[in-house]
Design a protein around this nucleic acid. Structure first.
Lengths: 337, 337
DNA sequence: TGGTGTTGCACAATCGGTTGTGCATTTTTG
DNA sequence: CAAAAATGCACAACCGATTGTGCAACACCA
């Protein structure tokens, strides 16, 4: 190890130590030395020296000169949720495989924070920006367009950028059918089924409601507006809305289509605290959580296929031409049916 | 908006447009223009121009010249876990408040990936590096030391860097006491209590086992080695180890101290699939998950105090002198007791 | 032996901000 | 009204890597 008495080692320092030139050192260290006809001997010497002295390249300098940062950015609403965190994790893993460095920002579903995060990412000259669960994806898409940076939406449709989303309608349809089957098997096919959770402005929620209604219609059931509670995702909201519903109905519905694990939390908490037997109610949740599955094996879940979605994202990244405002849908898989 | 016909706008372009000089533009844009006695009028004109043209600073250039990146790095083993993801989220939020940009890497508890992530972070010239749940924290600390970058450990003690950890022993002691109380209240104080999950090389696990034993000793109970199953954290491992234990014992123990929500997943899955009533077993878990709480209100959990831990981390960052290999412990809070 | 080709490397410009310094103007002071 | 001080800005040298280009030295061929 070198003495770190003052500054970090640069290629100029190495050049001096190796009695060579900065350009040669640079070529050796970035692997282009063969093209530059640097002798094997000198290359070895420089590599050994760099290693011995603990040289670390300065990525800012490289990025500046190359006019390529090697960074991809991702904006997520939050981490502490199995869905978004697995998205971030899968994205980072795939980016790493491609030699790209990932930066992720968490914007709490706040449009202002989203804009600010996008601004920073563009300032760091990300080569691609992927937005997940943003509230204002088009604003970000426009910033990216102005900067000439390709932008993708994940889990949300944007009008101004290509997007990869779950097949929300089809997934919801299948989940609903599974719920109805379970209800019929339990001998109570006529009991009410409640759709709860999500937001009205949210495209995913709207699609899922449509799938829900469509599935019921295919079974000859009509869906009253009072059986669709779009109360927000938050656990507490869902809990309050559900309690209202149960009080109006005089008891819990026969089955529930719960639109996210967050809402599931509120519903289950309420049911358990009131002493209801979860096994007596058919539960389906659009989204997946392994702990929920462990606690309630009969819980049906539409698990969004994160690995496949990330794969599609990179396919769109690879072929920007093909991507032109396309929308790719990925079918979630049903768990516990 | 400008025509983005070719490249991104630079301060040189702005200087030309404003009939001024790059240094003036730079000063105006980074807020030091008053010190440089730039007139208010000119500053306003340049700001308006920059805004109109959608100028975005190049952080690589700034970082290179300033020799300060404004970036802090964090290494976590994984995201898709409530504990680590909330750590990442809290860290990013606090860093943002301080005008720092955060980059997080997820290294899957793999020492090689950890080294690689640290190397990259140092190449990006992070100003601080915080390691959480790393398997080889000291290796990273040494890399940082060689680079002259302050390094902190979070949730793990390192010998070569200051660290912030949960008060594992005290937390485990309190959780165990709560478990024993619950067991006594259920009228079966003599039933076996099993400690399960975690890794032997893991400092946190060792401390928690000590707290567990200590609590039992304080109640006059001895702890047999067969009642401590250090089988790894993974759900499947815990499940298999637990099944073995139950088969040896001829039935489930009266109570369980489960060392992580990951292990909890395996245990609960097994119990439920075998048809056991969770309410008949006293369950305590070192770590917290809101969905688990919803499904099983009587589950006791030691919730690690992430906000407080992050606060301590930044205190150590602020006062490097004070930090000198200190170890700060933060008491987890008991949920559901 | 002179010309051509190849090998092996160094030079210097460049990426886009930052910042110490210098120098005209203008204003203030005695 | 001259000297001193303040104002307002531009110049140019960086930061550390990349890369087009140039040019010795040597090999090869006729």
């Amino acid at each position: 190890m070198s003495d770190d008495n003052s500054k970090r080692l640069t290629i100029y320092d190495l050049a001096q130590l190796a009695q060579s030139s900065p350009s040669t050192v640079s070529a050796v260290l970035n692997g282009t030395w063969q093209q530059r006809r640097i002798s094997h001997k000198l290359a070895d010497r420089i590599l050994a020296l760099a290693h011995a002295e603990g040289y670390s390249i300065n990525m800012q300098a490289r990025a500046l000169r190359r006019e390529r940062s090697g960074i991809v950015g991702m904006i997520v609403p939050m981490y502490d949720n199995r869905y978004f965190s697995s998205i971030a994790q899968a994205f980072e893993a795939e980016a790493r495989r491609r030699g790209l460095f990932t930066i992720v920002s968490c914007t709490n579903r706040d449009p202002e924070q989203e804009r600010e995060a996008a601004r920073m990412m563009l300032a760091y000259r990300v080569e691609h920006l992927v937005c997940t669960g943003a509230t204002a994806p088009d604003a970000i898409a426009e910033m990216c367009a102005a900067a000439g940076v390709p932008c993708l939406n994940l889990d949300l449709p944007g009008t101004r950028a290509p997007s990869v989303i779950s097949a929300n309608r089809e997934g919801a349809l299948r989940l609903t059918l599974a719920i109805l089957d379970r209800l019929a098997a339990a001998g109570k096919p006529e009991q009410p089924v409640l759709f709860i959770g999500g937001r009205g402005e949210d495209h995913n929620t709207r699609e899922r409601v449509m799938g829900f209604r469509q599935a019921r219609r295919s079974r000859g059931l009509d869906t009253s507006d009072t059986d669709v509670l779009i109360c927000g995702y938050e656990a507490d909201r869902a809990q309050v809305a559900f309690q209202d519903y149960v009080e109006r109905l005089g008891g819990p519905p026969g089955a529930l289509f719960i639109n996210s694990t967050i809402s599931l939390e509120g519903i289950v908490r309420w049911l358990r605290l009131r002493g209801y037997d979860l096994d007596a109610i058919v539960l389906g949740c659009f989204d997946w959580d392994p702990l929920a599955a462990a606690f309630h094996p009969r819980l049906m879940m539409a698990r969004q296929d994160v690995p496949a979605m990330i794969e599609r994202v990179f396919e769109l990244i690879d072929e920007p031409a093909k991507a032109r405002n396309r929308r790719v849908e990925v079918l979630p898989t049903l768990i516990g049916v």
